[in-house]
């Protein structure tokens, strides 16, 4: 079943066109990797899907779960099962992690017409998910991402994903800044969540993460468009030849 359908998407940020006719279809249960050089528009894709202000779709459409995604506020997208793991998770001093997560989970549940979790039920759920990510419980008493190391921030993103159990998870360069142990933990967390009714969009610059999270499809994003799609082996060829190889192939094809 098609979960996400992006057609001819053009997105403008601060007056500049970043996505220039991007099309992509993601079905339930699939893991898609989006690779591409710096500045290709990878993070813009993540932000426009999550609904960040200032990322303006000027053309095209995004259908998510049968609805026009662009009509929904960010919180409504979250309640509908969308999750973005940030490349740069935001530090929010003074806001307690547990309080924030409980507010988020219960707001989503309320919006979906489900019953809210009480403190006991919530803590039980949190402890289960912390164990999977090898995160310490003291993380819960700290402020959101405040003073976290780079690796802790990224693991905290995946922990939030595990807790919120989205239908479509977008991982924006979750591998950047991670050492190999942290990378494996993150990949284990993602792989444990792979399910027939859930899809992943894994945005990455390097092939390394895809050794651990093996995608069903790999797309190359360059200059605001998907210029090449293939299976997991495309990532390996990219790693071998570099992004310039794609550009050359495009030129050859055009000639």
């Amino acid at each position: 079943m098609t979960m996400l359908k992006i057609e001819n998407l053009h997105v403008r940020v601060a007056g500049k066109e970043i996505l220039k006719g991007l099309s992509l279809e993601v079905k339930s249960g699939e893991v898609h990797a989006i690779m591409g050089p710096n500045g290709a528009g990878k993070s813009t894709l993540g932000y426009v899907l999550a609904g960040r202000d200032g990322y303006e779709a000027t053309q095209g459409r995004i259908e998510y779960d049968g609805r026009n995604l662009l009509d929904l506020e960010p919180e409504a997208r979250a309640a509908a099962g969308m999750f973005l793991a940030f490349q740069y998770p935001v530090e929010i001093p003074g806001v307690n992690n547990t309080y924030f997560l409980k507010a988020a989970l219960n707001a989503q549940r309320k919006a979906r017409g489900e019953s809210e979790l009480d403190s006991m039920q919530f803590l039980k759920l949190v402890r289960e998910k912390l164990a999977v990510l090898h995160l310490k419980e003291d993380l819960l008493n700290r402020a959101v991402n405040a003073g976290f190391s780079g690796g802790e921030k990224k693991r905290n993103e995946i922990f939030q994903m595990a807790l919120l159990e989205p239908k479509l998870a977008i991982l924006d360069e979750t591998d950047s800044g991670l050492d190999i142990d942290a990378l494996k933990m993150v990949a284990d967390g993602v792989n444990a969540m792979r399910a027939p009714d859930r899809a992943f969009l894994v945005i990455t610059h390097y092939q390394r993460l895809l050794d651990y999270i093996v995608p069903d499809f790999v797309h190359v994003l360059a200059d605001g468009r998907i210029v090449e799609s293939g299976d997991a082996s495309l990532a390996l060829r990219l790693e071998e030849h570099g992004y310039a190889w794609i550009a050359q192939r495009k030129l050859a094809g055009a000639a």
Partner: peptide, 11 residues
């Protein structure tokens, strides 16, 4: 920060 919280479902 506002977008981060909203992206997690907080209205």
């Amino acid at each position: 920060a506002l977008f981060y919280l909203r992206s997690r479902g907080v209205p």
